[in-house]
């Protein structure tokens, strides 16, 4: 019986290495119940069920050493999404826990290496766990007052005065903001105070409004 599918042109293995299969069929560090209040120090969620992947991660972080002492997760997604999340949770919590500073540097390639590879077409879409993890890390940084360590994936600061990014604006629009005033209210920040920034912010609002509701 063949366990794999090969791309006849590139020879690329389409489906999953034994490690991927192992993590897919026997996921590690799953969170099966809803977490109780205060049982974790931080959490983050990325993805969209419409796109086929949602990842939610919960972290326990040792306050003294800032190592990741535990990572639990839930994932809605395909085989590689589940396996990648499982492997990532092992990587950050094994050997006494990875320092948070190192863990936020992990990239999809690092997960893939440990998984023994993933089909190319699956990498961008299914390895979202590092992003979910960074969101959880941001949650931690915010809770511990380390605002300067917050990293936002793929976002660009559009208003230096408030640190508001294009992603913040996009999310505000997704939440129903349609005017600059709405966005300011949602973001609890006086975004767009200066003339030139305001123009750009308003453009972004129009762009996302068109994109999502047009």
């Amino acid at each position: 019986m063949s366990d794999d599918i090969r791309n006849e042109r590139t020879g690329e293995r389409w489906v999953y290495s034994p490690t991927v299969r192992d993590h897919f069929f026997h996921p590690r560090n799953l969170l099966l119940d809803e977490p109780t209040e205060g049982s974790f120090d931080a959490s983050g969620v990325v993805g969209s069920p419409a796109c086929g992947d949602v990842m939610h991660v919960w972290l326990k972080i040792d306050k003294a050493t800032e190592r990741v002492s535990d990572m639990k997760w839930k994932t809605f997604g395909c085989g590689s999404a589940i396996a990648a999340t499982s492997m990532f949770s092992v990587m950050v919590s094994e050997n006494g826990g990875m320092p948070l500073a190192d863990a936020v540097q992990l990239r999809p390639q690092d997960v893939m290496k440990r998984l023994g590879g993933l089909p190319n077409r699956k990498i961008h879409c299914s390895v979202l766990v590092d992003k979910a993890f960074r969101k959880a890390a941001n949650d931690w940084f915010r809770a511990t007052g380390q605002v300067e360590r917050i990293q936002v994936d793929g976002a660009r600061v559009v208003d230096p005065a408030t640190g508001v990014t294009d992603k913040d604006i996009e999310e505000a629009v997704l939440e129903g903001a349609v005017t600059l005033e709405d966005v300011q209210k949602k973001l609890k920040a006086g975004v767009g105070a200066s003339e030139e920034v305001r123009t750009e912010v308003e453009q972004l609002i129009r762009f996302y409004k068109e994109k999502y509701y047009g």
Binding site: V45, S48, P49, R142, D168, A172, L174, K186, Y212
Partner: peptide, 13 residues
């Protein structure tokens, strides 16, 4: 956390 960080895409859907 600011409320816009919560499951925004889920709500959007």
């Amino acid at each position: 956390r600011p409320h816009w960080e919560r499951n925004v895409i889920l709500n959007e859907v």
